[in-house]
């Protein structure tokens, strides 16, 4: 196996405020190979975005302390000097964030903003290069868009501009943090198709941060499911989503309304909310919301179980030799399985 493009080992982000320490990201390990499409999913407050920012030390440095190792092409970005880090940002790892309106400078023309990402070019060539990048993102009338201010463009167009800026330095890894949450489904599809096409063309890897399991199921190769600052399950998308092993992954999947489910099927929710980082539970962080919990789940951290290229962090159940009925398993605590799905 070649050296992975990105290897994150035991990443933790700790905030210290008014003498109180909280650790919203505790011990996250993940790997992205060159050209690979990897997703990180979880509810809000699970530490997904903080993890993404910590990769290039973008987390607020005055308050946050980042520990662990982030090996990008073998060098640890957490210990790099400012100059070398600046090279990694943009040329190594580029970002596209959720809200393009907030990410773009409202008082700069689009072409000037893209030109800022092209410092190696002569001033005279920058406009042409900017238009060229915009053309690649499929913007209609790129020459006009280049002269425009962000407010003159729609959300989908702005996100294409963000993408053009991210691509300007030919990064090897594109981190997209909820890139399409603010967009319509049809625009969302266009932007995601575009990301797919461009990453293929440039041989970029993608780390997609999202809470939309549908996007993960359709487009990604591997997935990391995060809960309460930890990775609770990971593996190939088709395995994890078709056969989830962690109760949290199962809960997320059951909560999603499906297109082919009959009307009025109640959705199965996950009771409770993500605990706050200043009050992580003692045992498994998911235990208070789990419908399949045991006494030890509340007192002891479950171990990572590694098997057939997958990981999940849950106490092993007494293996069921006998086939339990669906209701006995899913419907513990009196709930019934909600989604009628075609049997294979």
């Amino acid at each position: 196996m070649s050296v992975p493009l990105l290897q994150v080992v035991n990443l933790a982000v700790t905030f210290r405020q008014e003498g109180v320490e909280t650790t919203p990201v505790r011990s996250v390990s993940l790997t992205v190979h060159a050209g690979e499409r990897v997703a990180v999913v979880g509810e809000s407050g699970c530490g997904k975005s903080l993890t993404a920012l910590a990769l290039t030390r973008l987390s607020p440095t005055d308050r946050a302390r980042v520990s662990g190792r982030v090996l990008f092409e073998g060098t640890d970005t957490l210990t790099l000097g400012t100059r070398a880090l600046t090279r990694v940002r943009g040329q190594g790892i580029a970002y596209v964030f959720q809200d393009p309106t907030a990410s773009l400078n409202p008082v700069m023309r689009v072409s000037d903003q893209i030109a800022e990402c092209l410092p190696d070019l002569r001033r005279a060539d920058r406009l042409a290069a900017a238009i060229d990048l915009l053309t690649k993102t499929g913007l209609p009338d790129p020459a006009r868009a280049a002269r425009a201010y962000p407010c003159e463009l729609s959300g989908g167009q702005q996100q294409r501009v963000m993408l053009a800026m991210a691509l300007a330095a030919r990064p090897k890894l594109l981190v997209s943090d909820e890139p399409t949450t603010a967009l319509d489904v049809t625009t969302q599809r266009h932007v995601l198709n575009l990301i797919d096409d461009l990453t293929d063309a440039y041989n970029m890897a993608v780390l997609l941060i999202t809470h939309n399991l549908g996007l993960v199921a359709g487009r990604m190769e591997r997935v990391y499911v995060m809960y309460a600052g930890q990775v609770v399950e990971s593996g190939a998308v088709t395995d994890v989503l078709a056969r989830p092993r962690h109760p949290y992954t199962r809960g997320l999947l059951s909560a999603v309304p499906l297109l082919d489910a009959p009307r009025n099927t109640p959705l199965q929710d996950i009771p409770g909310t993500v605990p706050s980082p200043d009050a992580w539970p003692a045992g498994c962080a998911f235990a208070p919301r789990c419908t399949d919990d045991e006494p030890r789940c509340h007192t002891d951290q479950p171990p990572e179980t590694l098997a057939d290229g997958r990981m999940h962090r849950c106490w092993p159940r007494p293996q069921t030799g006998q086939q339990k009925t669906p209701t006995a398993l899913c419907g513990s605590r009196g709930r019934s399985p909600s989604i009628a799905l075609p049997q294979p």
């Binding site: 549908g214 996007l215 297109l259 049997q343």
Partner: peptide, 28 residues
């Protein structure tokens, strides 16, 4: 519009997997 909806069930079916955790729910 329908084609643009990112649907878990449909996406998995297209990738040759059935999304059947709910009826069996054994977590393997």
């Amino acid at each position: 519009l329908l084609a643009a909806v990112p649907d878990v069930g449909r996406a998995l079916k297209e990738r040759g997997r059935t999304h059947r955790f709910a009826p069996t729910c054994t977590g393997e």
